[in-house]
Design a protein around this nucleic acid. Structure first.
Lengths: 194, 194
DNA sequence: CAAGCCGGCTAACGAACATTAGTTTAAAGA
DNA sequence: TCTTTAAACTAATGTTCGTTAGCCGGCTTG
C-alpha cells in the first residue's frame, strides 16, 4: 500500500495556486513562472506534475462544470415545486462556491482559453444548464409564483449574481446557510419591503 | 477649421477593437498583433496612434470610471428619495452600458492590469462609488422602503448584475428604457409575485 | 509642380514565454 | 548499505511578445 496521506500533495498545491492566479490575473496573463513562484519551485519543475498549462486550466474547470451539471440533474429529477427548485439551485451555487472558491471564478471568463474538445464540452454543459434553469423560471411564472417578467432577463439577473458569489465569499466568509437565505431573499423575494 | 468628419477616425477604431478583444480574451491574452489584425494593419503601425498597450487600457477604462463618478455625484446632489436614487442608479448603469458596451466590460476584471498611478485612481473612484451606493441602500432600509437585509449583500447582488449587464445587452439589444424597468423589477421588486 | 507630413510598411531588438532534455538530490525500500 | 525513484534542478529550445527605428507611398497644401 504505497502512500496514503503523502505530504499535502504537490499537485493539489499547484492546482490551488493556479486557480488563484488565473482568477486574479487571468489565464493569459499568468505565466508558468508566476505559478512556480507561488508554489516555491522553478517553472520547469512544474512539468513533473502536469503536462501543460492548458491541461491545468482544464483540470480546474471541467470538474466544476461537471458538478453543476450533476447538481442540476438531481434537482430536475426530484419531485419539487418550481419555487423549491429555484431555492435548491441557489443552494447548489452557494455550496459549490464555498467548496471551490478558486476554480469557480474561472467559469465566468477564462473558459475561453480552453482548447477543443474541452471547450465544446464545457459550452455544451453550460448551455443545457442554463436551458434547464430557464425552464424552471418559466414554470415559476406559469404557476403564478413569479411575476410575469421576461424569463431570460430573470435568468440573467440571477446567474450574474450567483456567478459573482465567489468574490463576495472571499471577502466575507461566514455561514453558508445564512448566505443562502440572503441570496434567496435578494434574488427571489426582492429588496422592496412588502 | 481643420477637419470635421474625417473618415471614421483610426484611433477610435483601434480603441473599439481593443475593447472588444480585451473583453473577449482579457488584457494579458490579447497581443498587439491581435489588435492590429482586427484593425487591418501591422502591429508596429499601431504606434503611430498610441504610445503603449498599457495606455490603451488606460484610455478605455479611466473615462468610464469618470462617468460613473460623475453620475453618482449628480444623483447624490439631487433632492430625491432613497428609492428614487436607486432607480436613477440603475438607469445610470443601463445608460452607460448601452453607450459603451465594450469598455464597460473591463471594469470587472481587467483593471488589475492598470499601472500606477491609474490603478490607484481607479480604485479610489470605485471605492467611493460603492460607498455612496451602500449609503443609499442603507437609507432605503432605514426609511422602510427596503426589507432589513444585510446592506452589503444587497449592494453585492445589485452591482454584480449591473456589472454583467453588458453581456446581456450584447446578446439582446433593444429598448434601454424597457431594460431599465426590467432591471428595477428584478433587483428591487423581486421576482416573487405579490 | 514641389514640400511636407500622415500613416502605412519592413526589419530588428531584447525580454519573456511555454516547454524539453538531461542532471542532481535525497528519501524510501531492498 | 545499495538500489531505486520521485521530484527538484540547470540549461537551452524556438516562439511570441511589446516596442523602436527608419523607410516609403500618397494625399494635402503652397
Amino acid at each position: 500500500m504505497a502512500k496514503i496521506l503523502r505530504p499535502p500533495g504537490r499537485l493539489e498545491i499547484i492546482l490551488k495556486e493556479s486557480a488563484a492566479l488565473f482568477r486574479d490575473k487571468g489565464y493569459g496573463a499568468t505565466s508558468m513562472n508566476d505559478i512556480a513562484e507561488a508554489v516555491g519551485i522553478r517553472a520547469a519543475s512544474l512539468y513533473n506534475h502536469i503536462t501543460s498549462k492548458q491541461q491545468l486550466l482544464s483540470a480546474l474547470l471541467m470538474p466544476i462544470a461537471e458538478k453543476f451539471t450533476a447538481g442540476m440533474a438531481e434537482i430536475c429529477a426530484a419531485d419539487l415545486s418550481p419555487i423549491s427548485r429555484i431555492e435548491r439551485l441557489v443552494a447548489l451555487h452557494v455550496r459549490l462556491t464555498v467548496a471551490h472558491p478558486g476554480p469557480i471564478a474561472l467559469i465566468t471568463g477564462d473558459w475561453v482559453h480552453l482548447e477543443e474538445p474541452d471547450r465544446s464540452t464545457f459550452l455544451g454543459q453550460r448551455n443545457t444548464y442554463e436551458k434547464h434553469f430557464l425552464e424552471i423560471i418559466e414554470a415559476c411564472i406559469a404557476g403564478g409564483a413569479f411575476s410575469p417578467i421576461d424569463s431570460r432577463v430573470a435568468l440573467f439577473s440571477m446567474l450574474s449574481t450567483l456567478h459573482a458569489l465567489h468574490s463576495w465569499w472571499r471577502k466575507h466568509p461566514g455561514d453558508p446557510a445564512v448566505l443562502e437565505s440572503q441570496m434567496v431573499h435578494c434574488l427571489v423575494e426582492g429588496l422592496r419591503q412588502k
